[in-house]
Amino acid sequence: MLIFSVFKTLTDQKVTVELKNDLSITGVLKSVDQFLNIRLDKIEVFDEARHPHMMAVKNCFIRGSVVRYVQLPAEHVDTQLLEDATRREAAAQGKR
């Protein structure tokens, strides 16, 4: 739930999603669900020449399981808070 919670705060921010098939998509995060499926708008694909089929695509839905990394905008992430949240999560899981 932690990462889901973090992504919730990042809606309407620009993120870069790196997929397991080495596709790297930058776009505006529209929504995330608990499976971390991601909906992106106004997307741009890194190294478009290699992926011409993506040139016409303007928005996409990414299944959470195919995501390798998500690059977050640093200015929109409260690192300390994120650390705290992680600690809480860990503590909560430890209690269980």
Partner: peptide
Amino acid sequence: IQVSQLVTQDPYADDFYAQVYGAII
């Protein structure tokens, strides 16, 4: 199905980051 995954016993703790971040913002 989706919502049932989201319901938790302690919504504040589970959504800690978003809650606090929202409060800060």
